[in-house]
Amino acid sequence: EEKRQVKQVAKEKLLEQSPNSKVQVRRVQKQGNTIRVELELRTNGKKENYTVEVERQGNTWTVKRITRT
């Protein structure tokens, strides 16, 4: 359940930055209360990979860091 929520948060964050792209989740890793989500962003056939680190704060998820990989 929490992985599902985190995927959603990570996707939304990337789509905010580039709204007309397609996002696909590649991998989800958990480390303590930080969850790392690896995503693939496609814009006009151009692929970019991103890693989004999401942290739990109380009962909400906040995006800590977005890295292009």
Rank of each mutant, 00 (worst) to 15 (best):
R4W: 10
E40H: 08
S21W: 03
R56V: 05
R27A: 08
Q8P: 02
T43D: 08
E12I: 08
E12C: 07
Q24A: 12
T34M: 11
K47C: 08
E48H: 06
L14C: 05
K46L: 10
R56G: 05
R36L: 15
R65A: 14
T60L: 08
N20V: 03
V52Q: 00
V25K: 01
A10W: 02
E48Q: 09
L15E: 04
K64Y: 08
E16T: 06
W61P: 01
E48R: 06
S18G: 02
A10M: 03
Q29M: 14
K30S: 15
K3R: 13
V54H: 00
K7Y: 11
K3P: 04
K64T: 14
N33H: 08
E53S: 06
E12K: 12
V52C: 03
K22D: 10
E1R: 05
E53L: 13
R4C: 07
Q17A: 09
R26C: 08
Q24C: 10
R42I: 15
N20H: 09
V37S: 00
G45Y: 08
E53N: 03
E40R: 07
E12F: 03
V9F: 11
R65H: 08
G45D: 08
V28W: 10
T43F: 12
N49I: 14
Q57D: 13
N33Y: 07
L15D: 02
Q31V: 14
P19H: 04
V23S: 02
K47E: 05
T62I: 14
V52Y: 01
V25I: 10
N33L: 09
T62C: 06
R68E: 05
R4V: 06
V37G: 00
V6S: 05
E55V: 13
T60V: 13
V52T: 01
V52R: 00
K7W: 15
Q24I: 14
K22V: 13
T62R: 12
V54N: 00
Q24F: 15
T62D: 05
G32M: 04
N59H: 08
K13H: 08
T69M: 13
K30V: 15
R36E: 07
V54W: 03
L14P: 01
T43L: 12
Q8S: 07
Q17F: 14
L41M: 12
P19F: 03
V6R: 01
T51E: 11
Q57G: 05
Q24T: 14
K47G: 04
Q57N: 12
V63E: 00
G58H: 06
Q24M: 15
L14E: 01
E1W: 04
T43G: 08
S21F: 03
E40Q: 11
K13G: 08
G58D: 10
V23T: 02
G32K: 05
E48F: 07
Q5R: 14
E2W: 13
Y50K: 00
E16V: 04
A10L: 08
N33E: 09
G58N: 09
N49V: 13
E2M: 08
P19S: 03
T34A: 08
E53A: 04
Q17K: 10
G32I: 03
Q31C: 11
R56K: 13
V25P: 02
T51R: 06
P19M: 03
R4G: 06
V9A: 06
S21H: 03
K13V: 13
Q29I: 14
S21C: 04
V23N: 00
K47P: 06
E40Y: 11
G45K: 07
T51P: 00
V54M: 11
K13D: 01
Q31Y: 15
N59Q: 10
V52E: 00
Q57P: 02
V6P: 07
E2S: 07
Q29T: 15
K13N: 03
G32N: 05
N59F: 07
K7T: 15
V54F: 13
E1I: 04
L14Q: 01
N49C: 09
L39G: 02
K64G: 05
R68V: 07
V23H: 01
V37N: 00
I66M: 06
Q17I: 15
I35R: 03
G32L: 04
P19D: 02
P19G: 03
V6D: 01
V23L: 04
G32H: 05
E12Y: 03
S21P: 02
R27P: 01
N59S: 08
L39R: 00
E16Y: 02
K3D: 15
V37F: 02
V54T: 02
V25C: 04
V52L: 07
N44V: 07
Q29S: 14
K22F: 14
G58W: 04
K64H: 05
E40A: 07
R42C: 07
E16C: 05
K47A: 09
K3L: 15
Q29W: 15
V23Q: 01
L39Q: 00
I35P: 00
R42A: 07
Q8K: 14
T43A: 10
E2L: 09
K22T: 14
K22S: 11
K11Y: 05
N33G: 08
L39F: 07
R56L: 11
T69L: 12
R68L: 14
N33T: 11
I35W: 15
V6C: 05
V63P: 03
R26V: 14
E1Q: 08
I35N: 03
E1P: 05
V9G: 01
E55Q: 09
K47F: 10
R27I: 05
E38L: 14
N33A: 10
V63L: 04
S18I: 12
R27W: 14
E16Q: 10
E1G: 07
P19V: 03
Q5M: 13
A10Y: 01
T67I: 13
R56Y: 10
N44W: 09
G58E: 09
R65P: 01
E2D: 12
Q31N: 11
S21R: 02
S18D: 05
W61M: 05
G32Q: 04
I35T: 11
V63F: 03
Q8N: 08
K64N: 07
E16H: 05
W61A: 02
R56S: 05
T62E: 10
K30E: 10
Q24W: 15
